[in-house]
């Protein structure tokens, strides 16, 4: 999973500063690990170096001055490509697929999420066909058992995809609600925040406050 792509997805809703991004990440992807500030700024630095985001100047929203970031055209293209591309089928992909669906619903629309899931299904099925053929020509029961292990995990992914496709409208609605609620809460929280210029240094303490 790529934190960079998730930040691109969050920025697709408009310019934001690092603190906003961290907060949005943690509230909308509750299954993932909370993002450390150091990681947010390191990732933004890398995205900026690669021309995917750009600084749009500093601003104050009743609090300390912060640098705002925005997507570039290249960033938008990189995000669209990531949302379009199925992950290589392998066991334990769950988190990445979930993140992609959520970012698709945040940054694009329902159809993008459904299309992604359809492509991911095709990729998974193609791999399952390969593994099933491998089993037929397997030289040992060990090879069969190894293939069965991967097949069982891909099958679990496929079940999850099918459930998620069936619930995509409800999920989209929930994410839209959360986004609205987060935007409304954003003004107060930013105003009350005492984090100074060097947010990376305050990473741990701030992090503790936010996750509570």
């Amino acid at each position: 999973m790529s934190t960079g792509h998730v930040l691109l997805g969050l920025l697709s809703r408009g310019p934001q500063h690092g603190y906003d991004l961290k907060r949005a990440h943690d509230s909308r992807l509750p299954a993932g690990k909370p993002l450390a500030f150091g990681q947010v700024y390191a990732t933004l630095g890398r995205l900026q170096r690669d021309g995917l985001v750009t600084e749009t100047g500093a601003g104050k929203a009743g609090g300390p001055e912060r640098t705002f970031y925005d997507l570039t055209d290249a960033g938008r293209a990189a995000l669209a490509e990531w949302l379009h591309t199925p992950e290589p089928p392998a066991p334990h992909l769950g988190g990445t697929m979930f993140v992609k669906v959520v970012v698709a619903l945040l940054a694009a629309d329902r159809q993008t999420a459904v299309d992604y899931l359809a492509r991911q299904r095709e990729a998974h099925m193609a791999r399952m066909r390969e593994l099933t053929r491998d089993k037929e020509s397997a030289a040992s029961l060990g090879e069969v058992a190894a293939a069965d292990y991967t097949i069982a995990h891909l099958d679990a992914d496929l079940r999850w995809m099918q459930q998620t496709v069936a619930r995509v409208d409800a999920l989209a609605g929930e994410i839209a609600e959360d986004a609205t609620a987060a935007d409304e809460a954003g003004g107060d929280e930013t105003g009350g925040d005492e984090t100074g210029e060097d947010e990376i240094a305050e990473d741990q303490t701030t992090h503790g406050e936010i996750t509570r």
Partner: peptide
């Protein structure tokens, strides 16, 4: 409805 069964086919129509 079972993907592990469908994997025996040459292709899948979902």
């Amino acid at each position: 409805h079972d993907a592990t069964v469908a994997a025996y086919a040459d292709r899948e129509l979902h």
